[in-house]
């Protein structure tokens, strides 16, 4: 690596390093504030419920469709491999494991990152560039508590519920495919699908969903709150909210799978 030699290069290098640490400290404070607000009543229950409704309603149609199709397609694609070994009766348990352990939390999170993350990022970004957030600040209306805390909490609450709903819809899709081809009864399908699922799987999936929900809400709010440069900035904030959340979701997925593996 070439070492910065001239004064100008050294100046920009030190400015870049300073900028990195300043930005890291701002991000840390923004996230840490959430935990401070968590223990500082009163809470905005009305606004939290409103945001929960928005998070749920925004994502429900897309999640229903995606979950259902994933169930059908995954079953359809897995059948030939299992049928080579005469093991098509394992399809329900294979789908059950795949959906509960990995697909449902990940797919739900990715859809919400796109749908909810972009919506929050754009909404707060627009509020930021039109000085609405500053207006709340100068009237002592605590914008962080009203805008950030409520949205992040709504994402944290709704993500596990949406994840369970995705699992249900994916299993439904899978069941329709299995029933059509193997004529398996619903009771047998359910019994087989849940046979290999234990409490640790459910716990890990709920934890994943909570972590993903927190990530989506926090990243979107942070990007919205730090929007600059007018309408162009709003577009960038919405985009960055989605992309950053998706990166983080994959990294978190990998870490949680690794940690859960130690307990298995």
């Amino acid at each position: 690596m070439e070492i910065a030699t001239t004064k100008k290069e050294k100046y920009y290098l030190s400015k870049g390093i300073d900028g990195f640490f300043i930005s890291a400290s701002k991000t840390f404070r923004f996230v840490f504030n959430y935990f401070i607000e968590l223990f500082r009543p009163p809470y905005e229950f009305g606004e939290i419920v409103k945001q929960c409704y928005k998070v749920g309603c925004d994502s429900l149609p897309l999640i229903s469709l995606t979950g259902f199709i994933i169930g059908i397609v995954f079953t359809k694609q897995s059948r030939p491999s299992l049928s080579d070994f005469g093991a098509t009766s394992w399809l329900p348990s294979l789908i059950g494991i795949a959906v509960f352990r990995a697909l449902a939390p990940l797919v739900t999170a990715l859809i919400c990152a796109g749908k909810v993350g972009s919506s929050i990022g754009a909404e707060l970004g627009a509020m930021k560039v039109t000085e609405q957030i500053e207006a709340m600040d100068v009237s002592a209306s605590k914008p962080y508590k009203y805008l950030v805390f409520t949205r992040v909490t709504a994402c944290v609450f709704m993500m596990p519920l949406l994840m369970l709903y995705t699992s249900f819809v994916a299993l439904l899709g899978s069941y329709i495919n299995v029933q059509t081809n193997e004529h398996t009864s619903l009771a047998t399908f359910i019994a087989n699908a849940f046979d290999k699922i234990n409490f640790l799987d459910l716990k890990a999936s709920v934890i994943k969903a909570v972590v993903f929900g927190f990530t989506i809400g926090m990243v979107a709010c942070y990007k919205g709150f730090t929007t600059t440069r007018g309408t162009e900035g709003v577009g960038k904030a919405a985009n960055a909210a989605v992309v950053t959340a998706m990166y983080l979701i994959f990294i978190e997925e990998l870490m949680i799978v690794q940690i859960v593996g130690w307990f298995r």
């Binding site: 039109t130 000085e131 500053e134 207006a135 709340m136 100068v138 209306s141």
Partner: peptide, 25 residues
Amino acid sequence: FSFQMSALYDSMTVKENIAFPLMRN
């Protein structure tokens, strides 16, 4: 503080805009 571009909360009506800081504080 009166902002140059007014900074009204565009998702709220006029009365909600005015009531907002009152109800928060």
